[in-house]
């Protein structure tokens, strides 16, 4: 086990995600966008998809499966980008 597969790593990730959530809220307030529950839900879902894509690519590289990293990287990145654009449009509505 290394630092990155330890429980302490996930503790740090937890702190980072808390900071990201607070920052996002401030950013949206400054833009005049009200964040309601379903917007948070979609945002959280997208964070999971994006995180999955990054972790999948590098896990595949780590286990010696470069084809999975490249093909999976392309497919999941496309999903991340298109869902990101769609979700951003929904979240960014002022009402």
């Amino acid at each position: 086990m290394t630092f990155f597969t330890s429980g302490f790593f996930w503790f740090i990730q937890g702190i980072l995600i808390t900071v990201i959530i607070l920052a996002f809220q401030v950013w949206m307030e400054d833009k005049g966008v009200k964040m309601i529950w379903w917007k948070w839900f979609l945002w959280g879902l997208w964070i999971l998809v994006a995180g999955f894509t990054i972790a999948f690519i590098f896990t595949s590289l780590g286990e010696g499966e470069p084809t999975a990293a490249v093909k999976g990287g392309i497919i999941f990145s496309l999903i991340t980008i298109t869902s990101g654009v769609g979700i951003w449009r929904l979240i960014n509505k002022k009402k």
Partner: peptide, 24 residues
């Protein structure tokens, strides 16, 4: 807060990359 959030997002993403590589 906003700057920290942006930095946190980058750090979190890079961290996930390292986590993935190590897990693999």
């Amino acid at each position: 807060l906003k700057t920290s959030g942006a930095a946190g997002a980058v750090a979190g993403g890079v961290g996930l990359g390292f986590f993935g590589y190590e897990a693999g």
